[in-house]
Design a binder for these strands. Structure first.
Length: 302
DNA sequence: GGCTGTACGCCAGTTACTTCA
DNA sequence: CATGAAGTAACTGGCGTACAG
């Protein structure tokens, strides 16, 4: 059972556009186990479809969308970025050299592809491959506009089919391989962020469990001390004034009792009305909700 | 229908480069 | 100005899947 949205102190809305799965990660200590498991098991390594709400630039926010739209309006996406544009956007960053990207499996596949070969030649800001020698790997810094468009596209679908990839590459004046790499890196970044969030979440869970364990150990010690003490039985309230419900183990006191035990009318319809609820290890360190024990009435208050 | 080779996409890990404090 | 850290584009190798022969 998921925690309600109003219960979330810090929630991550993880919307997955492709299959419309939605996942929320609650970082509050008061997490129920199912919420924890859903947040952690919902991630599939082969389909890391998380959309993490980042504090700096939330791709899901309206402001971000508006900003991106304005950026989209601001540039002519059908125009190949010129070298001058590159200089303007990225200062003295190096022009895009494609020589070093012709390597490995990818180039084996894409290097011989006709369309993509065209894109290779048409894009890359008119810089020839061998401008910087054969071994250097010059890195292109994508312009803000390009990054914004890629981000917007990623927001819609975090993977691209070949058609989308080609269209986007053409739109941005990049090679399809660059678009593909950008999406791969973007997915990796998203996953990394999510991993960090999950790690933080597990850390909190661990802290809560430690605290709960400490509390229970203390309670056990108190109970043992009381059991060994001969005065324990002397201090016990006579059974005529305190009765315990065998079903829910709650102590019922007469209406006149001024003690802290539950004085409300306590009637059960059937013997199975109450059932034992396991302790929630994901709950906060605060005492779990349960009926008072007989020891609660006699335990010294701290 | 099962097997094999090929193409392709994705991922984790890494490298190389840029930017910034 | 030099430098280290952080960010990120690009590369590499491995794995899974689809498909044709």
């Amino acid at each position: 059972m998921m925690a309600g949205k109003e219960d979330l102190g810090l929630s991550l809305s993880l919307s997955v556009p492709q299959n419309q799965h939605s996942l929320q990660l609650n970082l509050m200590p008061s997490l129920v186990p199912s919420a924890a498991s859903s947040s952690l098991s919902g991630f599939h390594p082969q389909n890391p479809s998380w959309n993490v709400t980042f504090p700096s630039s939330d791709p899901n926010s309206n402001s971000y969308r508006a900003e991106t739209r304005s950026l989209l309006r601001g540039i002519d996406v059908n125009r190949l970025p010129s070298t001058a544009d590159c200089e303007e956007e990225v200062g003295v960053s190096s022009p895009n050299s494609t020589i070093s990207s012709i390597s490995g499996k990818r180039s084996e596949r894409e290097g011989i592809n006709g369309d993509e070969h065209e894109m290779e030649r048409a894009s890359s800001r008119g810089i020839s491959d061998d401008e910087d020698g054969e071994t250097s790997r010059k890195k292109l810094r994508l312009s803000k506009d390009q990054a914004a468009i890629l981000e917007e596209s990623f927001k819609e679908h975090n993977t691209l089919n070949p058609k989308q990839k080609m269209a986007l590459a053409k739109q941005l004046g990049l090679r399809p391989r660059q678009v593909e790499v950008w999406f791969q890196n973007r997915r990796a970044r998203t996953k990394l962020k999510q991993t960090e969030v999950d790690c933080e979440f597990l850390k909190r869970c661990c802290e809560n469990l430690t605290e709960e364990n400490r509390r229970l150990q203390k309670e056990v010690q108190e109970l043992r001390a009381l059991k060994l003490s001969p005065q324990f039985y002397m201090q016990m309230t006579p059974p005529t004034t305190l009765t315990m419900c065998p079903s829910c183990e709650r102590v019922a006191a007469p209406p006149t009792a001024s003690s802290t035990v539950d004085a409300r009318p306590h009637t059960h319809i059937g013997p199975t009305r109450h059932r034992t609820v396991p302790m929630n290890p994901w709950a906060p360190a605060a005492p779990v909700t349960r009926g008072p024990t007989p020891f609660d009435a006699i335990r010294p208050r701290s």
